[in-house]
Design a protein around this nucleic acid. Structure first.
Lengths: 142, 142
DNA sequence: TTGCTTGCAAAAGGTTTGCATTAAG
DNA sequence: CTTAATGCAAACCTTTTGCAAGCAA
């Protein structure tokens, strides 16, 4: 499954004229494998021996190609990143910042609706839901 | 109409124990009146003689009370703010950063869906649609 | 080869913080 | 009165930038 993702990303990079360098491969592999919605700093810590500038450069490309999306958890001041293989949205805890995936809601009509209403030519959608995660709900009860 | 908004905000502030200070009133009035999705710096420029710290402090309160929301236009590195009187979402131009409002899409079932799927106790939703605004579409055609 | 990428360090700049002063309730 | 809020400046820290060196294609 993850090999399929890797192939997709590699092909997409090549198609758009981006070279397949070792740093890029490492970052892509990490992003595909992790489900932790990491920050740039977390990626920098996990993918050894890369400068932060390369992390940011690579993420910028992946975002432009819609392979990775940015998430603002509004808990720390850092941008979180997520490999976006299959469509989903994020639910973020306003107390501890924990981010989980969700998918059982149909946004397929949203782009068309936005285009019709605003005249924008839609290329992407970002959905974030905020609330208290189960753990933080328990803490509040005490 | 805007007086109604002002009353709502003032009452909400009072209900939650926040003092109605002159800086807060100025900022609230500006946020209700403008439709420009301003940054903190723009608010600072328009609402005279207030330090940025007060702008940020006040915005933080208004956000906590769900009276104002944050928007990331991913074009500049600044957070944009918007008075959130009536439910709507934002469509952001990926080329020039222009933000417009839209509302003709039904998100009313989203909170319930997210709660059921994740167990989070939902308190808010953030929707952003990205694309090319009509002006930037024309520029690209040339 | 050759031009994109990397890697390092330094800079930038939006946002936060500390604290003395002021004023709302 | 009392305590929260303001105002100012300095600090913070994530992210960006510049450029010489390296390496895919």
């Amino acid at each position: 499954m993850e090999n399929k993702d890797l192939t997709l990303v590699v092909n997409t990079l090549k198609e758009h004229g981006y070279k397949l360098t070792s740093p890029r491969k490492q970052i892509v592999e990490y992003m595909i494998s992790t489900h932790s919605h990491p920050t740039a700093e977390m990626i920098h810590r996990e993918v050894k021996n890369l400068p932060v500038s390369t992390i940011y450069n690579t993420l910028e490309i992946l975002i432009k190609l819609h392979l990775v999306i940015e998430i603002d958890n509004k808990n720390d001041d850092k941008t979180h990143y997520d490999y976006f293989g299959t469509p989903h949205y994020h639910v973020v805890c306003t107390n501890c910042g924990k981010i989980v995936d969700a998918e059982q809601f149909d946004f397929s009509k949203l782009p068309e609706s936005a285009e019709k209403e605003t005249g924008y030519q839609v290329t992407g959608v970002s959905i974030e839901v905020f609330g208290l995660c189960p753990d933080c709900q328990k803490l509040k009860d005490k």
